[in-house]
Structures are given as structure tokens and as C-alpha cells.
Amino acid sequence: MPKTGPKQARIEPVHEAENMNLPVIGWHVIDETDPDNEIVVSEHDTEAEAIRAAEEYEQRED
């Protein structure tokens, strides 16, 4: 059952070829409101952009 209440989002770094030792090439904002159905909602070039987008996503009421 989906979680009710406010949205929750987190950011995660994107590494080239999923190798954690390689440089970060971007950032994902992930909707974790329903832990059983996490969804990537946006992609960003910088961590700062991703943080702003995650905060804005959590404030949306759609």
C-alpha cells in the first residue's frame, strides 16, 4: 500500500558504468514516498541542482 502523507525524495549520484570508483557523472532525484516503488523523477548535472529539485518535488501537491 502506498504511503500517505508528504512526499519524500532523496538524491543519488550516478557513476559511469555503475562503478562506484569512477567519477560522478550526474545526480538522480528519487521519489521514496513508497519504499516498495521508488521512482527516479529527474536527472541533474550537479548535486546542488538535484538538492533543489528534490526539495521542490517534496513541496508539490500533485
Rank of each mutant, 00 (worst) to 15 (best):
1 M>H: 13
2 P>F: 05
2 P>I: 05
3 K>C: 09
3 K>G: 07
3 K>V: 10
4 T>R: 00
4 T>V: 13
5 G>H: 05
5 G>I: 02
6 P>S: 09
6 P>K: 08
6 P>M: 03
6 P>A: 09
6 P>Q: 07
7 K>E: 05
7 K>I: 02
8 Q>M: 10
9 A>M: 02
9 A>N: 01
9 A>E: 01
10 R>F: 00
10 R>T: 07
10 R>W: 05
11 I>V: 08
11 I>G: 04
11 I>H: 06
11 I>N: 03
11 I>D: 01
12 E>Q: 10
12 E>H: 04
13 P>E: 12
13 P>W: 09
14 V>P: 02
14 V>G: 04
14 V>R: 05
15 H>M: 03
15 H>Y: 07
15 H>T: 01
15 H>S: 00
16 E>G: 02
16 E>I: 03
16 E>C: 04
16 E>A: 09
17 A>V: 08
18 E>Y: 07
18 E>D: 15
18 E>W: 04
18 E>L: 07
18 E>P: 00
19 N>P: 01
19 N>K: 14
20 M>E: 15
22 L>V: 00
22 L>P: 02
22 L>Q: 13
23 P>W: 04
23 P>F: 03
23 P>N: 01
23 P>I: 06
23 P>E: 01
24 V>S: 00
25 I>M: 07
25 I>G: 04
25 I>S: 00
25 I>L: 04
26 G>K: 06
26 G>N: 06
26 G>C: 08
28 H>Y: 08
29 V>C: 07
29 V>T: 07
29 V>W: 06
30 I>C: 02
30 I>H: 06
32 E>S: 09
34 D>K: 13
34 D>Y: 12
34 D>H: 13
34 D>C: 04
35 P>K: 09
35 P>Q: 12
36 D>V: 12
36 D>G: 10
36 D>P: 03
36 D>C: 09
37 N>F: 11
37 N>D: 15
37 N>S: 15
37 N>I: 08
37 N>Q: 14
37 N>Y: 15
38 E>W: 02
38 E>G: 03
38 E>C: 09
38 E>Y: 04
39 I>C: 15
39 I>T: 14
39 I>A: 15
39 I>S: 13
40 V>Y: 05
40 V>D: 15
41 V>C: 03
42 S>C: 10
42 S>R: 00
42 S>A: 14
44 H>D: 01
44 H>E: 06
44 H>S: 05
44 H>A: 05
45 D>W: 13
45 D>N: 11
45 D>M: 09
46 T>C: 11
46 T>P: 00
48 A>R: 15
49 E>W: 12
49 E>R: 09
49 E>D: 10
50 A>K: 01
51 I>T: 08
51 I>Q: 04
51 I>Y: 05
51 I>L: 11
52 R>N: 12
53 A>R: 00
53 A>K: 04
54 A>H: 01
54 A>D: 00
54 A>P: 01
54 A>C: 13
55 E>G: 11
55 E>Q: 12
55 E>K: 14
55 E>L: 11
56 E>H: 02
56 E>K: 02
56 E>F: 00
56 E>Q: 03
57 Y>V: 06
57 Y>P: 14
57 Y>T: 10
58 E>D: 08
58 E>P: 02
58 E>Y: 09
59 Q>L: 13
59 Q>R: 10
59 Q>N: 14
59 Q>M: 14
59 Q>C: 14
59 Q>V: 12
60 R>L: 11
60 R>N: 04
60 R>E: 12
60 R>S: 06
61 E>R: 14
61 E>H: 13
61 E>M: 13
62 D>S: 08
